[in-house]
Structure formats: C-alpha cells, structure tokens
Nucleic acid binder design. Structure first.
Length: 271
DNA sequence: CCGGACGCCTGTCGGC
DNA sequence: TGCCGACAGGCGTCCG
C-alpha cells in the first residue's frame, strides 16, 4: 500500500510525538510479519531515547542511542499515535510505548511489514544496502535513468518500480508519473531517449511532491497518524480510472498487466 | 546479469 | 444470500 508519499506522510505525522522521547517498552502481539520480529527486539529498545526519525525509500528509520529501529509498512501497514490504554484492534500487531504513556501503534492486516533493530549505520543493513537513490534527492535525474537503463529490455514501468534503480515509486505513482511524462508503461526502458527520461525524472519528482503535499493517497486502509485519510486520490490521473476519460485528451484510460501489476495508461498520449 | 513468475497474508468486491 | 475467484498500495527469491 504505502509508497514514498505515504511513508513520508507517516513520518511527518509521528515525528513530533516521538523525537526526544524515551521508549518505555515494545509490546509485540504478533511477531509474524514478512520477517518475524526478532525475539530480542523489545529488550534492545527499552529505555532508549529516540534521537531522530528518518526515511530511506519506504523504510522508516528510528535513530536510537544504540542502533536503529527499521520499520517497513509493507502493503497494508499504517501507524497511529494513541494513548497506550486504547484497546488494540485485530491487526494492531505492535505498540511502541513511550514513557508519557502515548504509543505508536502498528497495524498491518496482511503482515507484509517489517520491524527490526539493527546496529548503526542502518544503511549497511542487507535490505537497505543496495537501494537506489532517493527520487527527491540530488542523485536522481534523467541522466541517471539514462545511464542505468541502457541495454535493459524490461518495461519502463517495471524499471522505475525497482527499488534498486530508484526507491519509493510503487504501482500508483509509477502509473501517474508515466502518464505525466507521456511515456507508454510497456516501452522497453533501454529504448527511451535521454530527453524523454529527463521528462520522466521530472514527472516522478513532481507527482511524489504533490502527493506528499496532500498527505498521500488513501484507497482503502491508509490513514495518517491522526486517523485522517490522504487526499491525493482525487488527483489521480490514470490509476484505477479504466475507461474513464484521460485528463489530457479525453480518450479512454486503458488497463493492462505489466509484471503482474495492474497498469493504467492513455493510448493516445503515451508512447 | 536479466527478466519473469511466485509466494507471503488478509480483506474486499464482483459475478454467478 | 452465499460462495469462489480475482485482486489489492511490496518485494525478496527462485528459475531459466
């Protein structure tokens, strides 16, 4: 579910409640996530002060006095800040309880998420080590995409959704960015000109920045830390809009499958 | 190395 | 109304 804008929205929402606070305890009601929560995680965290919160791709990083807590929301994860006494729901698997009796509650119905302590620097963790650049950072550009994509026959949509190429671009924002850049999602990545990849890099940055500004996209279960939805859904140009008119030309939005993921595009605008 | 398929889970929705 | 398959915002792994 959550792509970069939703993770960034979660980060901004929870940070004011967490940074500078001390962790009282970690309550794990279900450890069976994508990677099981290691048994010693709670004792690693207890008593530590949260120095800072960061994001790397779709991972949230909690900088502690000793080491870093990594959190990934998977497909269906969301975070809330609540009084620790609030009754947990069926999929509220973990509470990070603070000394002020507020807690960060992690809900994840599909259990594709991840929660793990790792020694510093977190960037050396196997799951973070080989990640591509941040799309909103200085290393990401049309030039970079051009250099990485030469000789690649995979569809451009699959290519930009590969976190080893660039982080944070999931199925919604890949579709949206390609429409904005007027590039067909099925075009071979290695056969797109430098000029058009400049346009794509700009489109990715612009779509992600807009989505962050609107608090992300809520399709079903994503909520911000205060329980409110994100409002980018009303800005979607193609995602989930099969047979509806293209916002640029009025032609029908087409749907197909690329790499086992639903893909949406305008056959008139995108080539 | 690359590209495509699969599996991990639960919930929801549409069709019959 | 009920059941059943398809599908859902991610991503590591495996295989050819």
């Amino acid at each position: 579910m959550p792509e970069l804008p939703e993770v960034e929205t979660s980060l901004r929402g929870i940070a004011p409640h967490l940074v500078g606070r001390r962790i009282a305890r970690l309550e794990v009601r279900d450890h069976r996530l994508r990677w099981p929560i290691p048994a010693d995680t709670a004792e690693r965290l207890a008593g530590q002060t949260i120095a800072a919160l960061r994001r790397r791709g779709k991972y949230l990083l909690f900088d502690l006095e000793q080491g870093v807590l990594l959190l990934h929301l998977g497909m269906s994860g969301s975070l809330r800040v609540l009084p620790a006494t609030t009754m947990p729901g069926p999929h509220d698997h973990v509470d990070l309880c603070l000394e002020d009796e507020q807690c960060l509650r992690f809900r994840d119905p599909r259990r594709f998420g991840m929660l793990q302590w790792t020694p510093s620097p977190a960037e050396a963790h196997p799951l973070l080590r080989d990640l591509g650049p941040e799309p909103l950072g200085p290393a990401f550009s049309g030039d970079y995409l051009h250099q990485r994509s030469r000789g690649r026959r995979a569809p451009i949509k699959t290519f930009i959704m590969d976190s080893h190429v660039v982080v944070g671009v999931g199925n919604i924002y890949a579709n949206e960015s390609l429409h904005l850049a007027r590039i067909h999602p099925n075009r071979a990545a290695g056969r797109i000109s430098r000029e058009r990849l400049d346009r794509l890099a700009g489109a990715i940055r612009s779509v992600l920045a807009d989505a962050i500004a609107q608090g992300g996209t809520s399709l079903r279960d994503f909520v911000q830390e205060d329980g409110k939805p994100g409002y980018f859904a009303q800005s979607l140009r193609v995602y989930g809009r099969t047979e509806q008119p293209c916002p640029s030309c009025g032609g029908p939005i087409r749907q197909c499958r690329i790499g086992q993921r639903s893909s949406f595009y305008c056959a008139v605008c995108q080539h």
